[in-house]
Nucleic acid binder design. Sequence first.
DNA 1: AACAAAGCAGAGCGGTGCTCTTGCTTCCCC
DNA 2: GGGGAAGCAAGAGCACCGCTCTGCTTTGTT
Lengths: 251, 251
Amino acid sequence: MLHPLSVCGTIGPMSTSPGAPALGIRATARREVTARIRAEGRRQLASEGAAGLSLRAIARELGMVSSAVYRYVPSRDALLTELILESYSALADVAEAANASVPDQDDLEARWRAVWRAIRGWAFAHPHDYALLYGSPVPGYRAPQDTVAPASRVTGSFAALLVPLATAGGSVPVPVAVPESLSASLESTRAFVGEGVPDDLLLRGLMAWAGMFGAISFELFGQYEGAFADRDTYFDYVIDQWFVLLGGPPA
Amino acid sequence: MLHPLSVCGTIGPMSTSPGAPALGIRATARREVTARIRAEGRRQLASEGAAGLSLRAIARELGMVSSAVYRYVPSRDALLTELILESYSALADVAEAANASVPDQDDLEARWRAVWRAIRGWAFAHPHDYALLYGSPVPGYRAPQDTVAPASRVTGSFAALLVPLATAGGSVPVPVAVPESLSASLESTRAFVGEGVPDDLLLRGLMAWAGMFGAISFELFGQYEGAFADRDTYFDYVIDQWFVLLGGPPA
DNA sequence: AACAAAGCAGAGCGGTGCTCTTGCTTCCCC
DNA sequence: GGGGAAGCAAGAGCACCGCTCTGCTTTGTT
């Protein structure tokens, strides 16, 4: 439909900030087209899901021939990976914003609730993205190592609550003795979360992590279908339960 | 390669049980071919995953032309649905067998451990099948209503442990007050699990259910990557923790 | 023996990812 | 300013997919 260069020639230069290193027509055009491809890809991903992400369809929608897209995107899987990384960052932003939005930062329960409500809200607002991050790996597609770092940012906003829980809260209720070998193999997790978190809290944190995402996944993927009617109340109940099970101080 | 009928004509009649209602040559041939298609589909599903399930590939492997397969299978998704149903049943069989294999049926902790170890073992033995059952729904494919019943059989072998837990065990540790509306909306779950299970145990059972499958999924899908080294010990620890958190009686 | 049902093979439609060649345009450097 | 190098669009093409339709053969039954 539209010739990319013609558009870039008009609005491209206007959109470059003054301090930018004076990109040529070619470079800004490339930026524009790349951005438009990603935007269209995101649109397809949101509406059709990962399997509906098709470079041919993107090209069709953007009025270019399919082979032209390969000038900007190395492959379909590469584009999918980029979109996944974007999604991880978006979810991490949402979680961190929710955590920061709590006025009284000493109110751990409020922060805990805010973070998990935000994560669940994002999951239901972007089900296909969530499925990509926390569902089964996409068929025929293997997540490259690059996804580990952005994923850990989401985990981080959850792990950041464990340290204040360890200091402000009491001990973990109904603790279970931690086997020696398990305790020894937790070093990387201990380093990630931070100092001052005892092993039983660390392990119950791992359980809570999987438990919360498991609850969201079960709800989103239909496993909880028919189990209860009042979904929001159930999830809030789960949030509160986990806060208690992690030894969170009562309000 | 092989002409289906030629094979069926030889081994088909031999495989029909004597008491069977005297299937004609045609009917037994149809059975044979259908079974072979399903077997080949299962093979592909196990090795390539759901996306690798291709009727054309099945036809190629079976030495027939692609259109011929459609005489036996209405569509690719229909075959996938059948295989999913089979997988649900297989997992349910595994779980029930593990439960029944415990000599002392009064030892709830042993039964609890046996069931979950079996489920996890099956998940790792059949990762693609597990992803189909408990991962994100397959792109472009929506599980029909038929999957609900077989899925509940798996859930049932887990829910069956809640009733003896309620009677033999004490109360749920660190209970959290159940909101009125939530309690009211639990009727179907209460009916499914059985009488005599208080609401807080019912709810924590739902949490444990999602938590255990969440832990398996996290481990299988790579979310736990690098969190701990001793995976088996960790999972056993999670099993024990949940047993305690459900108020299971100490050994 | 005749007939209708069942089954097979092949061509074909529209879709996918991806590659290669061909010609053109822009850029950069001499 | 001119020329070479690099970037780009277009199109054809390959191999794959699900699925359909048309003939033709085989089969089981009447």
